[in-house]
Design a protein around this nucleic acid. Structure first.
Lengths: 209, 209
DNA sequence: GTCTATATGCCGATAGAC
DNA sequence: GTCTATCGGCATATAGAC
């Protein structure tokens, strides 16, 4: 269960949040190394030196942005699945999780988009710290697929771990190409759920090659 | 049809290639901004100043790495599909293209991995230049899917463009998590082709929800 | 073609005034 | 809590010897 979005001392801090919002936006647009503390400070209406009252280093800022990016989506997906009627089957749960992930990603996605885009650019220690949060979210999907396989919803020859990795890549990809004006997020979610559950091919009785 | 891998004047140049190989490897490992010209030069057994005899700027180097990354895969996939027997159906073509993309990506993938990882980090002008090469490769997949839809292999309610975008994200994702020792690339390709064509769910005669 | 040396500028981080 | 000023370091790029 993800923790609520507050700082490490458990308090909410408006200035701290403003800095993190600015950092997420700038990291998302320009990458980690290309975003300077002066850029972040300017986007938060401050001077660079002032950031050090709230954070110890640039690495500290990016580490918090990365963690929030995963936790935002994790919480949204968990809440959506938990909100389903008690008798919902695995198909419904998978469809709901796909829709919730895409909604969270595309609605207020500076933190999550930043995570997707800059994870590979940050220092190894920061990556390692974020891995724990990532693993927790991936576990949610693994559980969903293993349960679906156990109850006969998905095939026995499916590798739940590989399926999870491919699906998460597809789920995150719209940050690179999705434009609101073309089709609603709910419709995008329906398409991806269809592909995930039933594939693109016309069903047939044949060998299934 | 992608052009052969030579420089802009149409000549092959060993030193130039050595620099590009080194740059692709370093960009892939550390990102664009975090890789200095000194790093690239050192990896190519040179000094930083010497790079300027072969390239005009860091942007020039990265632009060429990006283009080669797409063209390597484009050529491999095109050749694999063209090498199929003349009577091969769309299912076979899609399976072959998926396998060829993964083989090219994971076998000698410094250029392609670098492209996937650093595209979002390079200056806008460099991105724009690489977009033409990317579009050409995406067109190959769009044609494949449109042909498959026309001949009744894939369903009419599939959006070929969206399917292409989701599949390419999945196809590129193994650069982040694939390890050779777990399962062969050919097996990975079979799994992804299964998911793409038939999905993960057990087939049923019902409403298909 | 490759080297050394260097110009010029931005980076993260710190010190101390207010 | 935010500012100004500045440190030391490393970046891209250039000039000119060999």
């Amino acid at each position: 269960m993800p923790k609520p979005i507050v700082d490490k001392q458990g308090r909410k801090d408006a200035t701290r949040s403003r800095i993190l919002d600015a950092a997420a936006r700038m990291f998302n647009e320009n990458g980690f190394a290309a975003t300077s503390l002066r850029d972040i400070a300017a986007a938060a209406d401050m001077k660079a030196g002032s950031l050090y009252y709230h954070f110890d280093s640039k690495e500290d800022i990016v580490a918090e942005v990365l963690d929030l990016g995963i936790r935002n989506v994790h919480e949204a997906v968990e809440a959506a699945v938990a909100g389903l009627p008690g008798n919902s089957d695995s198909r419904r749960k998978i469809r709901t999780a796909i829709a919730a992930h895409l909604e969270a990603l595309l609605a207020h996605g500076d933190y999550t988009s930043a995570n997707i885009r800059i994870f590979g650019q940050v220092p190894a220690e920061v990556r390692k710290r974020n891995m724990a949060v990532r693993d927790a979210y991936e576990k949610l999907w693994l559980n969903l697929f293993e349960q679906a396989q156990a109850d006969g919803t998905i095939r026995k020859d499916v590798n739940p771990n590989i399926l999870k990795l491919f699906l998460l890549a597809a789920l995150n990809s719209p940050v690179e190409w999705y434009r609101t004006d073309r089709l609603p997020v709910a419709e995008l979610a329906r398409l991806l759920a269809d592909y995930t559950l039933h594939g693109a091919a016309v069903p047939e009785k044949g060998t299934g090659n």
